[in-house]
Write a protein that binds this DNA or RNA. Structure first.
Length: 563
RNA sequence: UGGGGUGUGGCCAAGCUGGUUAAGGCACAUGGUUUUGAUCCAUGCAUUCCCAGGUUCGAGUCCUGGCACCCCAGCCA
């Protein structure tokens, strides 16, 4: 590996931090946090944020990054998600040490701070209904008007707020609101809600509370309580920053973190909205959150993507405030690059065509040395059984080959990888005219793949001995969508209309080299000339590994063919 | 003129307080190596930085005026 291959280390957020450090702001501390709401599985977009926040902590001496669950909406949240999120962050290779926090840890403190606000005349209990609240808020171009409850006394508000907590009001009956400015051009400043009533159990606090703090109030306070220095979030929160700062300015919090916004990740041929991913799962368009076609961390993991590849991807795409769409090809390429150097090469025939080597002794088996990696001898080698009947790939034979086709055809000679040169003498077809078998002869002098007379062959193809083949299931995965922007509104159609109907192709009986019999779950291999595959961790059983295609190899022949 | 943002090659993206030939990656193209049409290597790929004016010896970087796109009216985050 080339050292210092770390691209694009410079970005606008690091520049800000560098400048802060130069001024000794925050006493030279750098402390970030990754703050997911535990209401779904993490996906590639979260990976960008994880790599950013934890990456910054790693990059600066003494830097820290917390994992904090933003669990302020009990209706949507669950421990299923807090568990999976922790697993995913760990799997990506990051460590929050002993700094795992929950916004719900701060409920009591948040409640006390809210009383500060009330005492200072900065918050009030409002009995407007949801519809009325919307009307009073005004529109983008018209100012709102004050709630009739806006000027209650602090004492009355304090009493009302305590009664809210005590459960004396029903859901929707009232709200604690910040008293800011109903005419503010920024809608977020028009007396936003601070607490609402929800009489549902919370996954951690159970039935202790029936009022829950809103994001805008909770997030800034949580950041401050944890001593966060740089609070990084996505662009849609830009308009919330004045509110973030407003709360912290009113409250006796230990510090005032700086919110900085960056653009969220968009990938083409992919959807990442939680709602849509959820729909894919619940309506069974995929097998679950961990379906190998899903852009979730668990999905990519099951597909065979590696943490290193995902982290490399996050480094490469850079960090800006530009609203951009990254080509999934970049991700796939990071995966190829990582897998190329780390996987063992093996032979696997996915679409078998039987070849009988007529001049090979009946019943004989010999074992041929085959290195696991062409450029890395340290990865060792194994022995491949060779015999009279073998399988090759259907696509490696053409009866009437076009120009530049280097593979097998009538009368042509090719090399069987690590084995012998063979020449095709006869093509056997069934009644329907399908090619079902090839009769070939081999040249015993070419053992190992070289001819003593120096003659060359243009093609080398892979093969598996028929008698020794491990027959098992292989799944070929492809992109889930066949349109670059399945969820853009330019289409008249629903985003699900762009689902790629060929995103999974099941091969019930592929023929693999026998060494693969004992492949372990999540092991990755390169099937030579075909792609990278991993052992499915759910459906594999002892003695019968099932393989998922992670990504194909680059294929310049495919390009050539289409010319 | 409701507010907040963003505009550098096909896709990303560096570019500090204006200063010689506008980084790098991906993609693409061509050539070389190769027992994977893989990998690897080499070369090429923006007279120009959304547009129009202006300031300056000199502007992607400063000023003025446009244009395009994104976000905001949850008791979601």
């Amino acid at each position: 590996m080339s050292e210092n291959a770390n691209p694009a280390t410079s970005n606008f957020i690091r520049n800000i931090i560098d400048a802060d450090l130069k001024q000794n702001k925050n006493d030279g501390r750098v402390h970030t946090r990754f703050p997911p709401e535990p209401n779904g599985y993490l996906h590639i977009g979260h990976a960008k944020s994880i790599c950013l926040n934890f990456g910054i902590a790693e990059a600066y001496p003494g830097g820290l990054c917390n994992l904090r669950f933003d669990d302020t909406n009990p209706e949507k949240e669950d421990v299923e998600y807090t568990d999976s999120i922790q697993n995913d962050v760990k799997w990506l290779g990051f460590d929050w040490g002993d700094r795992l926090f929950y916004a719900s840890d701060y409920y009591e403190q948040l409640f006390d701070y809210a009383k500060n606000l009330i005492r200072d005349g900065k918050a009030y209990v409002c009995h407007l209904s949801a519809d009325e609240t919307r009307e009073y808020r005004g529109t983008l171009t018209e100012p709102g008007k004050p709630s009739p409850y806006r000027d209650r006394s602090a004492a009355e508000n304090l009493d009302l707020f305590d009664r809210m907590r005590a459960g004396e009001f029903e859901e929707g009956e009232c709200l604690l609101r910040a008293k800011i400015d109903m005419a503010a051009p920024n809608m977020n400043m028009r007396d936003p809600a601070i607490y609402r009533i929800r009489k549902v159990a919370h996954h951690r606090t159970g039935n202790d509370w029936c009022i829950y703090p809103m994001y805008d109030y909770t997030h800034c306070v949580s950041d401050a309580l944890e001593g966060i220095t740089h609070s990084l979030c996505t662009l849609e929160f830009e308009d919330h920053r004045p509110l973030y700062d407003w709360f912290l300015d009113q409250l006796p919090v230990p510090c005032h973190p700086q919110q900085i916004e960056f653009a969220r990740l968009n990938l083409n041929y992919t959807v990442t909205s939680k709602r849509k991913l959820n729909e894919l799962v619940t309506h069974k368009y995929v097998s679950g959150w961990d379906d190998p076609r899903m852009p979730t961390i668990v999905g990519m993991r099951r597909r065979g993507y590696t943490p290193e590849a995902i982290r490399d991807f996050c480094d490469r795409i850079g960090l800006t405030k530009n609203d951009t769409v990254i080509d999934v090809g970049v991700l796939e390429n990071c995966v190829r690059e990582d897998l190329d150097r780390r996987t063992r090469r093996v032979l696997a025939v996915l679409d078998p065509l039987k070849v009988v080597i007529e001049n090979y002794p009946e019943g004989d088996t010999e074992y041929l040395d085959a290195p696991y990696h062409p450029n890395n001898p340290d990865m060792g080698q194994r022995q491949l059984p060779f015999s009279k009947e073998i399988y090759i790939e259907q696509s490696d034979f053409m009866e009437d080959p076009p120009k530049k086709f280097f593979r097998l055809g009538p009368g042509r000679e090719v090399r069987l990888r690590y084995a012998y040169f063979i020449t095709c003498n006869e093509v056997i077809k069934d009644n329907a005219g399908n090619i079902i078998e090839l009769r070939c002869t081999y040249d015993p002098e070419t053992k190992g793949g070289n001819a003593p007379d120096g003659r060359k062959v243009k093609g080398t193809i892979h093969w598996v001995s028929a008698e020794h083949a491990l027959k098992t299931e292989v799944r070929l995965y492809d992109r889930l969508f066949n349109d670059p922007k399945p969820d853009s509104n330019r289409h008249e159609q629903d985003w699900k209309d762009f689902l790629n109907t060929e995103s999974i192709q099941l091969i019930k009986e592929a023929c693999l080299e026998p060494s693969l019999l004992h492949a372990k779950q999540e092991d990755s291999f390169q099937f030579e000339r075909t792609g990278y595959f991993c052992v499915d961790k759910k459906d594999s059983v002892n003695g019968k590994p099932v393989f998922n295609r992670t990504v194909t190899l680059r294929d310049s022949w495919a390009k050539e063919k289409n010319k």
